[in-house]
Design a protein around this nucleic acid. Structure first.
Length: 423
RNA sequence: GGAGAGGUGGCUGAGUGGUCGAUAGCGGCGCUUUGCUAAAGCGUUGUACGGGUAAAACCGUACCGGGGGUUCGAAUCCCCCCCUCUCCGCCA
């Protein structure tokens, strides 16, 4: 959620932000509801004030006295009116909340203009894309692939997009996760193993609810949600808390399976390991002082990049343009790994600064030594990394003429041998 | 899952219908005393929203786990929910 004061006092700033993100938001309607709400609030508060004054006066009167009884009947009318107006206020308040939630976060000044993904800026490219085997093929076409990554049985047991990883397949998944967690730990992120079901309050704080409930799996009868990313439980760790200023910045990382219903995709996007309903991911999360958040974003991105570098996977960094920025992000980089078999880039990490947008909704603050007042932290997150697409690129890029896959040296200690064998 | 006990400010802990944002203690902050520290004394000390201001000051309202209700008036009475603790059951 954006600061209501900014919307109220600098609507033009917000209009510019909406335009840069190429969104349609009726800001005038938001402002109109806000004006109505403030008028109604003052009205109700005046009535309450009258009630309180009467109560104080009544406390000093003898209980059954004529003056007392006169006050009671007088206040009955005021009380009824207050109740009625308060109901109207509550109604307006809910509409205002909805309206405020429709206003996106402001993009940072360094975010490039643009509307569509092709207008994202290629910020950096690492590794030689042409050096990888010309004989590479999409991972799902590698002979023996289905033995180690059993989609058919996954579909039988659960549904499409829930593969079994078997033998070296399972081992490689575990090796990657272990490698990611160890590397992130070395970079200063404290490892956390969070709940993977969350309640509605948590899903609301990070923005999955109320609009995107269709993208999550929901349990019955308890109405808990399977996490779409570790970002949800991790961010909510400090929900409704005031953290020690001296503890900032706080770095955390967590491995969780991630569950996504996401309907509507088709074709190459969803073949093989490209897009799944359940996948494994290590998430990086930071709570930082507002003054440092853009430095921290760069460092976060480099931490994620280092993982790809150590795996010797070619990748590029995209700086997202305004139109491709998410609703709640101020600035975002995507890391895309080169998939030699598919001859395309696959997104494996998305590193974002939310400034106070998430923190306001989740009420995560620190007490500023400077002002003495609680202030909202800035939150950042990024994948470090998502397993299946890294896996896809690794299989395709490192496929040998003999059908084996060479394991990157950094991963060998985790995998236990130098080659993955499909046979 | 069953039975019982509880949830009050940063913490401990009073308060069972009115003058209670809430006694007291601890902690924190400020001042005094002090060579320094400690100790003592005095004072001060929540958050949010709205109004107000150049910014403050200041004014108003709300907040005693969450939500509803009764009442002129609720921390206090009633209902529902959540959480914690104890005992029993079950269980990896």
């Amino acid at each position: 959620m954006l600061d209501p004061k900014i919307i109220r006092e600098s609507p033009d700033l917000v209009r510019a932000a909406i335009a840069k993100k190429h969104l349609e938001v009726d800001l005038d309607a938001v402002l109109a509801i806000d004006t109505l709400w403030r008028a109604q609030l003052q009205d109700v508060e005046a009535l309450r004030s009258a009630q309180k004054a009467a109560n104080t006066a009544m406390a000093a009167l003898p209980k059954g006295s004529p003056e007392f009884l006169a006050k009671v009947s007088e206040m009955k009318a005021v009380s009824a009116q207050a109740k009625e107006r308060d109901a109207q206020l509550k109604d307006t308040e809910e509409r205002l909340r909805q309206a405020m939630l429709s206003v996106p976060n402001l993009p940072h000044a360094s975010v490039p203009a643009g509307k569509t993904p092709d207008q994202n800026v290629v910020y950096a490219t690492h590794g030689d894309v042409t050096a990888v085997s010309a004989a590479a093929r999409p991972h799902w076409e590698i002979p023996g692939f289905e033995k180690l990554f059993d989609f058919a049985r996954g579909a039988k047991v659960t549904g499409a997009g829930f593969p079994f990883y078997v033998g070296d397949g399972a081992r490689l998944v575990r090796a990657l996760l272990h490698f990611f967690l160890d590397e992130n730990g070395k970079a200063g992120y404290v490892e956390v193993s969070p709940p993977i079901l969350v309640n509605a309050a948590s899903a609301t704080a990070t923005g999955q609810l109320p609009d995107k409930e269709g993208q999550m799996y929901e349990t019955t009868p308890d109405h808990l949600y399977a996490v779409p990313t570790a970002e949800v439980p991790l961010t909510n760790f400090f929900r409704d808390e005031i953290v020690d200023e001296a503890s900032l910045p706080i770095y955390r990382c967590a491995y969780t399976p991630c569950f996504r219903r996401e309907a509507g995709s088709y074709g190459k996007d969803v073949r093989g390991l490209n897009r799944l309903h359940q996948f494994d991911k290590v998430e990086l999360l930071k709570w930082v002082h507002p003054a440092t958040s853009y430095d921290e974003l760069d460092k976060l991105r480099l931490d994620a990049e280092r993982l790809l570098q150590k795996l010797h996977l070619p990748y590029r960094v995209l700086l997202m343009c305004g139109g491709d920025l998410g609703f709640s992000q101020s600035k975002k980089y995507d890391l895309e790994v080169w998939s030699a078999g598919q001859q395309r880039w696959l997104e494996v990490s998305s590193c974002s600064n939310f400034e106070t947008f998430q923190a306001r909704r989740a009420q995560i603050r620190f007490r500023s030594k400077e002002s003495g007042k609680p202030e909202l932290v800035h939150t950042l997150n990024g994948s470090g990394l998502a397993v299946p697409r890294v896996l896809a690129a690794l299989l395709e890029n490192n496929l040998q003429p003999d059908g084996r896959v060479k394991i990157p040296s950094a991963l060998v200690p985790y995998f236990g041998k130098e080659y993955l064998i499909f046979a």
